[in-house]
């Protein structure tokens, strides 16, 4: 009886199915079918016989035993954590300050300009950043004029600076864009709170600290937790574009490793194993983050 009603509803909704099934097939081909390629992670290429041979977990054992694995993990986590901390503090600070601007026109202009770098490609951003930091660039010029340094600092050539270079590049590119979500959350704060605080004689700073910041607390928490889930995705574009032979030791992330081993050295199995490792760990982290953020967000509402 029940199955018959389901079938009749499917037939009744055939038009919706006709619209969605081609898309599902398309997604299957481009998103699910390549997962079959993960089999490569458990194989080894035999050049003599031109076949892939099953080797079990050999690739993973090699990977976890390799010194470059730890270097790459350290770089990925280091850049992620720095970008996360810098990114959040700068975006929250900027959003709080934009929220305090009283002239609406000026506020809009600041917002529009701060979104700009988000729309530029990483190639353009890298070109602009490397000019900005070059030996004759504006930063070195200003620092020398002010007498803070005697000789130009070659920021791009020092491996110790690289993580911070990436962190600040990420901030420049996305800080304005990331304020959108906080500013949206701030519009939801009850204006009566500000009025009564003003009557109590609270200054601007204490209003920011006691009303605005708590008002966006749950938004911040959810975003921080969700971003933790992406911690292994430090990206590759900006590292690829801004690194050089001098800094590659601190610049190589998981994704860059996969590109180098997989495409340039044609060690497909090892690269796939590392890519698979990244995806699996990411899914675990994201599921955990999702779980935590649901609990925390609920608590934040109480």
């Amino acid at each position: 009886m029940r199955t018959r009603t389901i079938w009749s509803r499917i037939i009744q909704q055939w038009q919706l199915f006709a619209m969605i099934v081609p898309v599902m097939v398309y997604v299957f081909i481009f998103s699910y079918l390549p997962l079959g390629g993960w089999a490569m992670a458990f194989q080894r290429y035999r050049p003599q016989r031109e076949v892939q041979e099953w080797v079990g977990f050999e690739q993973f054992e090699f990977l976890f035993g390799d010194a470059s694995f730890f270097r790459v993990m350290r770089n990925t986590l280091g850049m992620s954590v720095i970008s996360l901390i810098l990114g959040f503090t700068c975006a929250i600070f900027l959003a709080l300050m934009i929220n305090e601007i009283r002239q609406m026109k000026f506020k809009r202009v600041v917002q529009t300009i701060s979104y700009m770098p988000h729309f530029l490609s990483w190639v353009i951003a890298a070109a602009l950043i490397s000019d900005f930091l070059s030996s004759r660039g504006i930063l070195n010029t200003v620092l020398m004029q002010l007498g803070i340094i005697d000789a130009p600092i070659i920021f791009r050539a020092n491996p110790d600076y690289f993580w911070w270079l990436i962190g600040w590049s990420n901030v420049w590119k996305s800080v304005g864009w990331n304020t959108i979500i906080y500013l949206a959350a701030m519009t939801g704060i009850d204006p009566a709170l500000y009025e009564s605080a003003e009557l109590d004689g609270a200054g601007r700073f204490s209003r920011i600290w006691h009303i605005t910041l708590p008002g966006i607390k749950s938004t911040i928490l959810v975003l921080v937790i969700m971003n933790m889930g992406w911690i292994l995705n430090a990206g590759f574009e900006v590292q690829w574009l801004l690194s050089n032979d001098l800094t590659i030791n601190t610049a190589e992330t998981i994704d860059l490793f996969v590109i180098r081993y997989g495409l340039n050295q044609r060690n497909y199995s090892l690269a796939t194993a590392f890519g698979m490792f990244k995806t699996v760990v990411s899914i675990i982290l994201l599921t955990a983050a999702n779980f935590v953020s649901k609990r925390v967000a609920k608590e934040g509402l109480m």
């Binding site: 390549p34 997962l35 890519g275 990244k278």
Partner: peptide
């Protein structure tokens, strides 16, 4: 079902090498 089927693609990605072979 279809929503979950599509949402999964945001989290599960095969990676560069399998995509290249596809």
């Amino acid at each position: 079902f279809v929503t979950i089927y599509f949402l999964m693609t945001m989290y599960v990605s095969a990676g560069l090498i399998p995509t290249y072979f596809l």
